[in-house]
Design a protein around this nucleic acid. Sequence first.
DNA 1: TTCTTTTCAAGTCGATCGTATTGAATCCTG
DNA 2: CAGGATTCAATACGATCGACTTGAAAAGAA
Lengths: 199, 199
Amino acid sequence: MPKRVDHEERRRLIAGALWRIASTRGLEGASLRDVAAEAGISLGQLQHYFAGKDEMIVFALEHISTLGEERIRRRITALTEEPAPRTVLRECAAGMLPLDDESRTGLLVGIAYFIRALGDERLRRHAQEGQPALRAFLADQFRQAAEAGDTVPGLDPDTEAMLLIALTDGLTSSALLEVITPEEALELMDRHLDRLFVG
Amino acid sequence: MPKRVDHEERRRLIAGALWRIASTRGLEGASLRDVAAEAGISLGQLQHYFAGKDEMIVFALEHISTLGEERIRRRITALTEEPAPRTVLRECAAGMLPLDDESRTGLLVGIAYFIRALGDERLRRHAQEGQPALRAFLADQFRQAAEAGDTVPGLDPDTEAMLLIALTDGLTSSALLEVITPEEALELMDRHLDRLFVG
DNA sequence: TTCTTTTCAAGTCGATCGTATTGAATCCTG
DNA sequence: CAGGATTCAATACGATCGACTTGAAAAGAA
């Protein structure tokens, strides 16, 4: 049987099992044995594909973040071509909210990773890397909207980008805690955008 | 030596040790042995004051949330008497941001608890309890400001209260991850309030 | 004093963790 | 076919976890 396996696909299979466990019990609560059992393989097999737990976590996180990016990209391209900045911003925010199971699981894993990063200098640097690009992209959308006269006057794109990210994060937390529903979170985001755009 | 100890004070001492460890390694990473060592007592002594780890965590969380409430209350009463709603809202938000070591530690412990609550029905109910009161308080401040004509027109107090909470949470996350500084977080919160109030 | 209660130190228990080792089965290459 | 490389199952190891038991020391009650 050996040698005929697709290494990457096997790793993605294991990553999926890790998500399902980590989304309910956290990354610390996901033992290698549990992950292997969830994936339907043996501990030995899992260890063949990942040298250690850290390597497995890093792979799973990068994979799930890739899926998240693709999901947002799909949301945007699914719209009319040349969508207005406000629409793009809304779909970005919506893609980062836990509106379906995939994004919900991804966010829970992301939070579990966030916790690890809080106490780990190296992980924290890694977690910080993704933000600037997103922030720049959102700021650019605000800039375009402002130039087109679609926003209220006196609005700083960089400030609004950061506020939008923070607001999305906070709404996500409340939705995951079931203080509000995901739909309410999206509605609140819309009310926020209402205040920034004219018409 | 026995019999002459203050039970509650001993429990608070242990809770303090738990915070210091949990704020860097999470609640799961804080073993009873580590907490006892941090508190400068033996494992046996710790176990004498808490029947189990869960009991210790619940006590520590309730204690730290009490401290947080007192901190915010102090911030508000430290202002001029009869402060304007905007000022009250700003101080509330500031009190929930990680601007000093005490609040920073408290928030990290709160997040560690938040993670536990995500996968635990009982803890989740408990975590949800605090929100409505805060939300109602903030909404009332917005209502007062609106009636005084201090806010922009067409502003829903309940919506704004929820947005303020979510924004504070999100800014806190970014500040803890050191994507922004706590001071930047407070500034962003001010910019947000700028948009809601006139003058 | 004697007895009871409180306080806590010390040690142990079984479970579980991440990791390492070993070796067999299988396929690919020469 | 021979032989190395790949794949994986099985098992074990040392560390660490929360929980528990035991018993001694000290203070108040009788």
